[in-house]
Write a protein that binds this DNA or RNA. Structure first.
Lengths: 335, 335
DNA sequence: AAAGTTATTGCAAACGTTTGCAATAACCTC
DNA sequence: GAGGTTATTGCAAACGTTTGCAATAACTTT
């Protein structure tokens, strides 16, 4: 069943035209007579003809590929297994496809430090979507400076030379915390890593909400990696050493919230009665957990779409800027 | 900061050699004098030189890319957001990279029906990893028949012309069910879709375990989509219409188990006291849920590695066959 | 029916690598 | 130091598209 690959010149011969005509016909160039065009396309379909993308990319100097780079610090942060991040990637995949591009999935392992060289000069992709600002954005900046078409999923408030698409993390933090307070919590705990770009904005929102009711609320911050496991451990330890010193938790992500929830439940601390809990992201599990998780929903689908649109605009030499995606407080049982 | 892309011929000129020599030097061809080789490589590093992969692929007729196709039936099945599937993809990504290949992430949206034509003839990738057998394997078979280097994540027991790597689903189902019985359950519920390739083996295991204690166990099957939501709904409905007719559930996936768990908890049915619950996959949430979920752990990391190894072997014209990956019962609180 | 337009096609070069083969340089051996 | 062997390099063709330009074919218009 293995047959020799048909190339354009063969197809042209079959149709009795030159390769130029065949090429133009396949690309729907209107300069070719419609009858000829249809005939050739028909023939192509019949013979399952496919263009050699390698040749085509070489000639056109573009790839119709978008690279997605997962940008995580080694092991101190959100892991690559974080369901939220994977959801973002999956949504980006959809959005990319809808625009007729393909998605090259990458991490720093392959790309090294010189993203511009690797992806753009290397003609592996026409543009880059970076998922995760990380704590230091050296590589992103460098790639941008070298002129890589580039867009970042992160916190749009960060000053930058490249467009960032992401949720309004500050507002999210503010709403979440206001909500905790409205539900009667007055000893608030922030669970997350304020050193991380996006999280720091959520933290700012947290502080701002507390500031609004000056004096009425106590606050403490527990700095942890963004994993459910770290959350579980730290809450456990906190309860062990200090007892229940809080009645409201703003967790910087749902995974963190779920880890905390587990620790609380194990000690029969009632959520939401003893402790009100709000997460961030609205991953699938938020709804399935028991009690279901009040959270700040991030609209990843819309964000993915905007990321791609903005990237394509750059390929088109338009200037684009950062954009905040609306968030939404989903009030469920945990608060 | 945008400078013209350096090409091989420029680099050669800088080094005072021919492009042939430069090319060979970069590819570490030992025929080139070591001094020359190092000098050129050094120069390449200094100038951030990168080969144009389009040209290189055209010339070499291979891409060093592996395509991963997510193969899901429209909407009746596991969704693309299923954390387990995403985990599999992520593990494959790692394994692919470790072998020096890149990962093209794809779904049927782009690839259409003719995978061989699209990926292989189109020179988009050297081989295919298909994630998910789905209910019908027409496209896979066709691609394999046409000679596409191909390997599938699915149930290895399925008779096929192509290698399948996956867990021993039958054994998993058997162990899970035996465990339920050992824990005292005698009215067992299977929650999943026996029409699905992998699930059907788990179901066989379920039946076999019950057969072993002939007469002692009642069983029922609720056929649902593989989502937590469907599980939640169906358990809810079952409880509403028939009451608590079971004391043990084997859920075909963790997400399904978690959906069921939620429905049970909402009605204050104790897990594991009233109902013992076992899931499948061991997603991250299994450990974080409360009670934590007893489950059959699938070793996706090993599986990913084997998938890639077997695919590369095929590229090397070796004949490879299917392989079962060991599973493991993780006994946690839900049983 | 000749001249002028316009619609349609083909020629040939270019995209940037890699590699078989031939050529040269470097080294031995006697 | 001549002849032979081996190590190192360069020439030029090939991979399969796309496209500017020139050429031809097909119409108009008078």
């Amino acid at each position: 069943m293995e047959q020799k690959k048909l190339k354009l010149v063969d197809l042209a011969k079959l149709a009795g035209v030159s390769t130029s005509t065949a090429s133009r016909a396949l690309n729907n160039n209107p300069v070719i007579k419609q009858a000829t065009r249809e005939h050739i396309q028909q023939l192509a379909k019949e013979h399952n003809f496919t263009l050699n993308t390698a040749a085509s990319r070489l000639r056109l100097q573009k790839t119709k590929v978008i690279a997605v780079v997962i940008n995580l610090e080694a092991n101190t942060e959100q892991s690559i297994d974080d369901p939220f991040l994977l959801k973002v990637v999956s949504d980006i995949n959809q959005a990319v496809n809808r625009q007729g591009y393909e998605l090259l999935l990458s991490n720093s392992y392959m790309a090294g430090d010189d993203w511009y060289g690797y992806f753009i000069d290397g003609r592996r992709a026409d543009g880059l979507i970076v998922v995760g600002q990380g704590k230091q954005q050296r590589r992103i900046e460098q790639a941008a400076k070298q002129g890589a078409p580039l867009v970042v999923w992160g916190d749009p408030k960060t000053p930058s030379d490249y467009p960032i698409v992401g949720s309004d993390n500050y507002l999210g933090g503010l709403l979440a915390t206001e909500h905790l307070i409205a539900r009667g919590a007055s000893n608030l705990l922030f669970l997350g890593d304020p050193g991380h770009a996006e999280i720091s904005e959520r933290y700012r929102g947290f502080k701002a909400a507390i500031e609004q009711v000056k004096g009425e609320c106590q606050q403490q911050t527990v700095k942890i990696d963004i994993t459910s496991h770290a959350a579980y451990e730290s809450i456990n330890q906190l309860l062990r050493t200090e007892g229940l010193t809080f009645d409201g938790i703003f967790a910087c992500s749902d995974m963190v919230a779920l880890g905390a929830l587990k620790a609380l439940k194990e000690r029969y601390i009632s959520v939401p009665n003893d402790v009100r809990l709000v997460g961030f992201d609205d991953i699938g599990m938020a709804d399935v957990s028991h009690p279901s998780l009040t959270t700040i929903r991030q609209n990843t689908q819309l964000a993915a779409k905007m990321l791609v649109v903005k990237l394509l605009a750059q390929l088109n030499n338009e200037v684009v800027d950062s954009q905040e995606i609306d968030i939404e407080l989903l009030c469920r049982q945990s608060s």
